[in-house]
């Protein structure tokens, strides 16, 4: 009997999730490891969806660009809750399509000690206009040394430049060491 109730709850949950996704036009939801293969699969899936809905080319290209940077940010920077392994880079990924814009929402675990530095970068990027972002990008690309994982510290600047929108973010504390970092990138549908 209890099994039946459990399975009923699960079906109800699946239906609610479906309804929520439909009303909010969420095209993609994922929680798990973010690898190069996942990045390629999601970007090509999103590309196909956009091509089918005859989204203008410029918008498609921007969504593609921003998705790659967001996903590669997770695969390069995400921390993990367990101490056991360092190479399991997990996160959540959501893509939603609104009347005026696409939103790409990513979330990953981050060490609390990294938050002040990241917050400072995000606030600095959000304080700049197009020309300011361009000079920050040029300065950073000249100074940057590629990390072992191939990060150049340019991802967030690039997202801000290409979307022309402010980066919206939040940190939710999980425990005294870790938080959950949520980043929302907005790509306008009409240029």
């Amino acid at each position: 009997m209890s099994k039946e109730i459990e399975s009923h709850h699960f079906l109800e949950f699946a239906y609610q999730l479906y309804k929520t996704m439909k009303t909010n036009e969420i095209n993609l939801v994922y929680e798990g490891e973010v690898t190069q293969e996942i990045t390629k699969t999601f970007t090509s899936l999103t590309e196909k969806n956009m091509a089918r809905s005859e989204e203008p080319n410029q918008v498609q290209r921007k969504v593609f660009n921003v998705m790659v940077e967001c996903l590669q940010n997770i695969s390069k920077h995400a921390d993990t809750l367990s101490d056991e392994t360092d190479d399991d880079r997990r996160g959540i990924v959501m893509v939603s399509k609104g009347d005026d814009s696409y939103k790409i929402i990513t979330g990953n675990v981050i060490r609390n000690s990294k938050i002040p530095g990241l917050k400072e970068s995000l606030e600095h990027i959000n304080s700049l206009d197009k020309a300011g972002l361009s000079s920050l990008y040029k300065q950073q690309i000249m100074e940057a040394k590629l990390s072992e994982k191939g990060g150049a510290g340019l991802g967030l600047i690039d997202i801000a430049k290409k979307t022309g929108s402010k980066l919206s973010y939040q940190f939710k504390e999980l425990n005294e060491d870790m938080s959950f970092f949520i980043l929302t990138s907005t790509i306008k549908r009409n240029y």
Binding site: Q72, L146, A152
Partner: peptide, 11 residues
């Protein structure tokens, strides 16, 4: 298209 890590190498 190139990602930001590639942009450093292009430089």
């Amino acid at each position: 298209y190139f990602n930001t890590a590639s942009s450093k190498v292009i430089l």
